[in-house]
């Protein structure tokens, strides 16, 4: 089985099968680039990911491992006639996988999934963040995401007035 070494920003190396690694768009491209530039077809590729630390990379690889046999979904699969099943693809395993993470880790995972082009993981992490927004007040959202208002002068009040046309009717 052909392997690839994936190295995190803090120097930890993960040895994974190329078949598994290729489920990440980014790693797939990297492996192919390595093949073209290398004379020795048996040589083991080594890919350094400078933006992702070991803890996060391990999570991404763990998720890929679990989902290695999933069919690759077309990009807009859930959007047919607006009746698509949003929960599709989110298994109990995924829920257990995400449950212990705090928002900081989830954000890092989103960045990693985006960088490595792992659509399925990006989907479930984005939906997790969305669930932290749904049903909350503005203040609760700001607290949850540690955000401060950056509106100037009466901009916020103006926005509230605009909103009234929709919410209070």
């Amino acid at each position: 089985m052909a392997l690839v070494r994936v190295i995190s920003s803090d120097g930890a190396a993960f040895l994974v099968s190329q078949r598994l690694a290729k489920r990440s768009g980014k790693l797939k491209t990297e492996i192919e680039t390595f093949r073209k530039s290398s004379d020795n077809s048996e040589a083991q590729p080594e890919i350094r990911i400078v933006t992702i630390r070991a803890e996060i990379l391990r999570l991404v690889l763990q998720w890929l491992q679990q989902h290695q046999n999933d069919p690759v979904l077309p990009a807009n699969q859930n959007e047919q006639d607006g009746r698509g099943d949003a929960e599709m693809g989110q298994s109990q395993w995924d829920r257990d996988f995400l449950a212990p993470m705090d928002l900081g880790i989830v954000m890092e995972l989103i960045l990693a999934a985006n960088h490595l082009e792992v659509k399925g993981l990006l989907d479930i992490t984005c939906k997790l963040v969305e669930s932290k927004i749904t049903g909350r007040t503005v203040d609760e959202i700001r607290t949850a995401f540690k955000l401060k208002s950056d509106f100037k002068g009466n901009e916020e009040e103006q926005t509230r007035l605009e909103n009234r046309w929709c919410v209070e009717n």
């Binding site: 949003a86 984005c126 939906k127 963040v129 969305e130 927004i133 749904t134 049903g135 909350r136 007040t137 503005v138 959202i141 700001r142 955000l147 401060k148 208002s149 950056d150 509106f151 901009e155 916020e156 926005t159 509230r160 605009e162 909103n163 929709c166 919410v167």
Partner: peptide, 21 residues
């Protein structure tokens, strides 16, 4: 934007207009 696009309830969408610019 992708995260916000998952929101379905209009109330949530309007709320989010108030979070930040």
């Amino acid at each position: 934007e992708r995260i916000l696009s998952y929101l379905n309830d209009p109330k949530d969408l309007f709320n989010c207009r108030l979070v930040q610019n």
